[in-house]
Write a protein that binds this DNA or RNA. Sequence first.
RNA 1: GCGUGAGUAGUACAGUGGUUAGUAUUUGACCUUGCCAAGGUUAGGACCCGAGUUCGAAUCUCGGCUCGCGCACCA
Length: 500
Amino acid sequence: MQNEQFLKDLNAFMQSKGFIYGPFPEIYNGVSGFYAYGPLGKLLKNKVENSVRSIFFSNGFRELECPTVVPDIVWEASGHLNTFTDQTVECSKCKSVFRIDKLIEEITGKETAGWKEKQFLEIIKTDRISCPSCKGAFKEEVKAYSLMMKTQVAGKPFSLRPETATVTYLPFKRLNEYFRKLPFAVFQIGKAYRNEISPRQHLLRMREFTQAEAQLFIDPKEKNNWEKYEGIKKEKLPLYTSHHQEKQLKVELISLDDALKHKHIKSKAYAWCLHLAYKQFLSMGIPADRIRIRQHLDTERAFYADDAWDIEIKLNTFGWTECCGVHDRTDYDLKKHAEFSKQKLEAVRENGEKYVPHILEIAFGTDRPCFTLMDLFYEKKEDGEGKSTFSIPYHMAPIDLAVFPLQKKDGLPEYAEHIKQVIERDFIVDFDESGSIGKRYLRAAESGTPYAVTIDYDSLKMKDVTIRDRDSEKQIRVSEKELKDTVRKLLSGEMKFSAK
RNA sequence: GCGUGAGUAGUACAGUGGUUAGUAUUUGACCUUGCCAAGGUUAGGACCCGAGUUCGAAUCUCGGCUCGCGCACCA
């Protein structure tokens, strides 16, 4: 924990402004690991997800939606059913729980892959293995913790997906037919579920959460023949290679070309994925100096990954936090599903040669970026220091603009209502006529709303309004006719706000 | 899951074994207000849940739930 007080303040902000409620359901005490998005939070999440969509769409990806609940054979094939189940032993004295495989590998140095319960219990007896923390004896039973949520469908065991990726691979044959040739890329934005033992860290580790995972299906022979790479090879990324980590060096801005030359990155296609993922976070308005791209060490790579890098963001609350993983999953998944389903999951080269495609995966969630935006842009001020602010980048703000009549009389509310109706089909608009104008400006600013449109007495005569800029607090006057276009240009960054 | 600390209006805090549980802020209404976190009047809103001790528990004890921290877990 980097900043406990700030997390408290942030949490109070998120709850009272209607961003995040929880743990859910609050009136029944709540269950940790579950949170609800309130009105403002959901608008923010929509912004995040639409930002993701627009980057993927503009790079030729197509979106899918697959079921979240699938039969267990899928998870047997993918390997999740095994690796998601931890076998543990409990100390009879101090009640500490240990993963039995890790414990025995650490103490005896033996490789325990594929061991059964009996073998574990025997070696604890024969080698007289005791609890590392209190030297007490272990209970003679092995308990299994499954990180997958289970259910039943038609009397058969099903599981809720712990990631969207695996489910995205299942319609491979259909996709291959749709796209007609490789490479092709698809993504899903949707819920995934993990039965975490003790979730912590708010939205960062939930039991039910939203993933946005993209999959690039590619001929392994084409990984270094990737045209799109040429346009970005000079771009510099903040890389934190395993070499840098081991030597305790600082993060370095390295061009993709150099990274490839020095074999930090294995292929051009992979480099392109990494770059695309990095761009995702920049386009959400996350400052570049808060981002680093960290290579997994050999010891932490997932069972399916050949190479893996994480995009990490430095949060005020929790420090460096993984927000995206880019994995080279090779042909692991398609081969496994071919084996278990007894179907051919192959593609064909121009020369008629058949092969199993490789998959490059860009995996992230949309909850973490939402948390990140609130963490980075909310600033709590104490009494006397001024007002607390939520200076989220304008294009990511939950509400686009607020409409205020200067006073609640003399026809101002009626005209303001008219203005609202003119623009609310194109923008997310708040309307507020209660309290002083200053208070309403503040309220809107605390929600991150970039622009406030105010209707005053001149508006009635001139058919125009003022637009007030959140950060500079300055105003410009535009006619009712120009309003829609002006706001659109301001929000898209096409036009800069400049008060005369 | 283990250890440890905590749980009082929407939010942030105060508080005592004994009438109507305070303060700030927020919220609603009215008055006022020309871009200001103005001001005034007024209204609304809480002791996490359960059991026990007691004449009496929001306060003490125990259990549960949740949260923070440490350990473990985070494929």
